[in-house]
C-alpha cells in the first residue's frame, strides 16, 4: 500500500495534527513501511469470519436510572487551561 503525502495530510487534518513540511515525507515513508507490513493480513482468508469487537462474554451491562450527585463544578474546572468561574472557554466558535 502506497502512502502519499496527500494521504498523510488528510489523516493529519482529521487528527488535528500539523506536521511540518520537512517531516511529511518521512512520516509517509514510516507509515507506508508499517502499513505494508500490516498488509500481511490480506494473505489470510477471513471470509465468513464475524469481526470481533468485544472479546469477553459480557453483554447487557446496564445501570439503574438513579441520580448520583454530580461532581463539584470547581473541581471539574480546576484543570482547565482557560476557565472562568462557570465554564470552559474556547475562541469564538458560535455567533
Amino acid at each position: 500500500m502506497k502512502i502519499t503525502e496527500e494521504m498523510v495530510d488528510y489523516v493529519a487534518a482529521l487528527s488535528r495534527l500539523a506536521l511540518p513540511e520537512e517531516e511529511k515525507a518521512d512520516m509517509a515513508a514510516r507509515l507506508e513501511q508499517i502499513v505494508s507490513y500490516m498488509d500481511v493480513l490480506n494473505t489470510l482468508d477471513t471470509g465468513g469470519v464475524e469481526p470481533m469487537s468485544h472479546v469477553f462474554p459480557l453483554k447487557n451491562v446496564l445501570r439503574e436510572d438513579r441520580v448520583i450527585p454530580s461532581q463539584a463544578r470547581a473541581e471539574l474546572l480546576a484543570g482547565a487551561p482557560e476557565p472562568d468561574e462557570a465554564a470552559f472557554l474556547v475562541p469564538r466558535t458560535v455567533e
Binding site: 482557560e82 472562568d84 462557570a86 465554564a87 470552559f88 472557554l89 474556547v90 475562541p91 469564538r92 466558535t93 458560535v94 455567533e95
Partner: peptide
C-alpha cells in the same frame, strides 16, 4: 451547549 460572550470574545462551553 456553546454560548458566545461578545464582551470577552470567547465561547463558553456548558456540558
Amino acid at each position: 451547549k456553546l454560548v458566545h460572550d461578545p464582551w470577552i470574545d470567547q465561547t463558553r462551553c456548558d456540558y
